[in-house]
Design a protein around this nucleic acid. Structure first.
Lengths: 326, 326
DNA sequence: CTGAAAGCGCTAACAG
DNA sequence: CTGTTAGCGCTTTCAG
């Protein structure tokens, strides 16, 4: 039933090498070419990418590890990476790990012998360094990681200066005469901690009180803000390391009849599309997802195709993108 | 440099078949097993998934076609599908097509000879039927499509009754004494048109005026609603076939000091996580993304692993999930 | 321009 | 339990 290159060759009365040449756009005499074309059309033959892959030692496929594709940050990253990789001739396998070590390990084991390289999005994946036997799986292929560094031969790091981003945001609020600025930390990976440091640094420099709240729930901004309003009544600004938390904060403030942007400023992080849908629209730190994602894809392609690569990390700086909330 | 099964066999002083048996957890005498294990560990050997795939005629990989992974609906679908497929032993290749025919064609050609099956999310992909030569690419593998049917041998359809969903929502508003209900149609694929039909049907049955507005911009809800407020001042309810449009509508209404949920009701569609972040929270049609996505994954697995399959379409019905906006 | 033959790394009879 | 052998479907020398 399944047609292969031998079938085509015999029916077109030529050799498999000639069919192979035809398939790879090499020189084939017009009449031979015509016969091959007819047989291929007749049987609707498609060469096996797997067999091709065995010879080429590559399926032109890359795995992208994210925490959860439903979160706008990862969805954006996956979108831009897939887009860029497609241009560069690679397919994208998506791995939703939920940040769970067991899931990460399972995906790495399954995928590492099938892909040409791996992109890890997010500092959670630094955890892998603690498990040498897991690391061993990716020792043969190039990897790119954002906001981190893996202890393997061929690893490229793409950094986004999260700390500086939140520092900038905090400074901005201080300049706008905000004095009671709270920070809501979401999760506790390396990036989350750095962001918190940025807040602390700016507040300390200005000799202002530090007030940090925590949540691990992406939709927990509302609840945390209710706590803030209860425990820190004169709050006049809230910053969060994640847009969705900030949007939750806006909702809570509005429910308490606090005019967001005036009575209390709010700044988010990631600059996801939802900033524009928030009411009022959210001011947020733009952490250059598109640029950094494209850099991930391009760097990995370089590493896959050349033994040598520039292992100097790439760093992107954040900017504030203004909405109505601050 | 690259180690293969021959290297392991010779260094462990046994045959490749024995190594193969070891790798596939078959019976191997303890001492032989031990030698093999040592050599494998020494060289950090990982069997090639590609070579395995060539023999098995399968890489245990599935392609999922979406319009844009950044849209919550597709992100959710991709998440649940990846999750379910992972449980079933398959990897997920993601294809962001933006709904562009050329991109769809390109991805199909690249991917069809590499994957065990394809899942198409969304009625846009019905367009493929118009191009027999594209269809020819997927004639050898099983496909699953939501809200559509492709003219290939092995196609399973998973439907979500969008029309009924919007019909239900409209009826509900009518029962709540809303009389000037507008509908905002987003994009114009089969599903979008069906939703509009659901609205029309309910309005006609109740002898109420039909007012349909259009946008192709996922973030265009704000603008359209401004138009509505200008041209149809006594509007008392807005329904949209997409949550983000509805959230934009809420924003516009609020800006005009119209109390959403009281003066004007708003109902969205998809029941994405952002319903809860909206201010006020959005009432929306739950179109069972999790259930239908799992059904996609399971159906495709059945089709991949069995020549026979139940080609009866599966249909899911929508429910209203209440927030504060209606 | 074309064909024969070797090989990519693994699995699966088959005979021992 | 183990080794030999023949593929899986393609690319790539190397002669012709």
């Amino acid at each position: 039933m399944k047609i292969n290159i031998y079938d085509i060759a015999s029916e077109a009365d030529t050799s498999i090498s000639t069919v192979s040449r035809y398939l790879n756009n090499k020189n084939v005499r017009p009449d031979t070419r015509k016969r091959i074309e007819e047989v291929i059309a007749k049987y609707n033959y498609k060469p096996s990418a797997i067999a091709k892959g065995l010879v080429a030692h590559s399926l032109k496929t890359v795995a992208v590890f994210v925490v959860d594709i439903r979160m706008p940050h990862y969805a954006n990253a996956a979108y831009y990476i897939d887009n860029e990789l497609a241009k560069l001739g690679y397919r994208t396998i998506i791995c939703n790990t939920r940040g769970e070590l067991t899931t990460i390990v399972k995906y790495i084991e399954e995928v590492s012998s099938q892909v040409d390289g791996i992109i890890f999005i997010g500092s959670v994946f630094n955890e892998i360094n603690r498990f040498p036997d897991v690391l061993a799986n990716i020792t043969n292929i190039p990897v790119v990681i954002t906001n981190g560094k893996l202890d393997v031969q061929r690893c490229k790091s793409i950094y986004v200066d999260d700390e500086e981003g939140i520092y900038k945001a905090t400074k901005y609020l201080i300049e706008k005469n905000k004095r009671n600025i709270c920070y809501i930390q979401y999760s506790n990976n390396v990036s989350a901690l750095k962001k918190t440091e940025g807040y602390k640094k700016a507040m300390e420099e200005a000799n202002l009180p530090i007030n940090i709240y925590y949540t691990n729930d992406l939709f927990g901004g509302y609840e945390v803000t209710e706590n803030i309003l209860f425990s820190y009544k004169n709050v006049d600004a809230i910053i969060s390391g994640e847009d969705l938390i900030a949007i939750g904060a806006i909702r809570a403030l509005s429910c308490h009849n606090i005019v967001v942007g005036k009575d209390c400023a709010v700044i988010g992080f990631n600059c996801s599309q939802y900033c524009e849908l928030s009411n009022p629209t959210l001011t947020a730190i733009d952490n250059k997802i598109e640029e950094s994602s494209i850099a991930c894809a391009q760097s990995l392609k370089e590493m896959i195709e050349n033994e040598e690569f520039d292992d100097k990390p790439i760093t992107f700086n954040c900017e504030i993108k203004f909405g109505e909330s601050a």
